[in-house]
């Protein structure tokens, strides 16, 4: 599970060499770009991000995100004016998808930015002081949260609150942090025996120095990889929640509620649900391909 530093044992004692960041970035980009699939993933993510951010300018009917009705153009199949067709009240599906992507990114970033720092640091602390009582407490609490599939936990929390985007974000935070705690806990327990940590201890480094300057930087790679993959999962889970009606409420479009609304009109108006479903797959695919690329980039030799 844990990705350990691959440094040869004899260089661990040596002072960390000054890194040339420009050079480092170039090397990493080269390794990332070796895998064509991951470059495609990056392009998908950037493309979708641009669509989401510039929705008001890029979408053909940007105002269709609200409670707009245009019965003259209702239920139009995909055509020249409406590339992905229109829904039962005549709103452009494509414009709504662009807007829904905004929610998806907000959700993904929000959940990860809230849970990753907290979860990781808890894990590092628990792993570094493995023998202390608070480590046991942290890890047992983590186990409790991990004893339920994230989906059930998120559903549970979400169900008791008013269904909004923000509340579904909160619900997912409850379900998400323990995974990072477990990840960094595992890494910290093995890293704390490394020579460079031992030597920092002997030199009298402060505990916060050891946690943040010695242990944490070695976890960046694994955390980053997991974060990229998790962006996909968070968006997917969020879509699932909004599919059952726990999330952004209509008329505001979200990827999940668009699918569930459209599912009522299958098979005649298939485009109302199929395009949002594809939209979910595209963005999750993007993050998955990218995550795999980052994993390859940060592991492996040379």
């Amino acid at each position: 599970m844990s990705v350990r530093s691959r440094a040869a044992p004899d260089v661990r004692m040596a002072p960390r060499p000054k890194r040339d960041w420009g050079d480092e970035a170039k090397r990493l980009w080269y390794k990332f770009s070796l895998n064509k699939a991951s470059v495609i993933g990056l392009c998908i993510v950037l493309f979708v991000l641009v669509l989401a951010v510039f929705q008001p300018w890029l979408a053909p009917y940007p105002h269709h995100v609200g409670a707009v009705v245009d019965f003259a153009n209702a239920n139009r199949p995909p055509c020249k004016e409406y590339w992905m067709g229109t829904d039962t009240v005549g709103r452009d599906i494509m414009s709504r998808i662009f807007y829904a992507y905004r929610g998806a990114f907000t959700l993904g970033l929000g959940v990860l930015l809230a849970t990753v720092p907290l979860g990781s640091i808890l894990g590092l602390v628990a792993g570094y002081w493995k023998e202390r009582w608070f480590s046991t407490v942290i890890m047992r609490v983590t186990d409790v949260f991990l004893a339920l599939p994230p989906m059930i936990l998120a559903l549970c929390v979400c169900a008791i609150m008013r269904p909004t985007l923000f509340n579904s974000m909160m619900a997912m935070c409850v379900a998400w942090w323990p995974w990072y705690t477990r990840l960094t806990y595992g890494m910290a327990t093995s890293l704390r025996n490394e020579m460079y940590v031992k030597s920092a201890e002997l030199l009298g480094a402060s505990k916060s120095h050891i946690i943040f300057k010695e242990l944490l930087p070695n976890c960046y790679g694994s955390i980053l990889t997991k974060m990229t993959l998790d962006m996909g999962w968070v968006i997917l889970t969020g879509a699932t929640l909004s599919f059952v009606g726990l999330g952004e409420q209509p008329p505001t479009p979200a990827l999940g509620n668009m699918v569930s609304e459209g599912a009522k009109y299958l098979p005649a108006q298939w485009w109302i649900s199929i395009f949002p479903a594809l939209a979910i797959m595209v963005i999750v695919l993007g993050f998955n391909l990218m995550g795999d690329g980052i994993k390859d980039m940060l592991s492996g030799e040379a």
Partner: peptide, 21 residues
């Protein structure tokens, strides 16, 4: 990849379209 990126409810909707109609 197709399996990983599609949530089960999307499959369910697709199946209902495919096998229901």
């Amino acid at each position: 990849y197709l399996g990983i990126v599609s949530p089960p409810f999307v499959w369910a909707v697709l199946f209902m379209l495919l096998f229901g109609y």
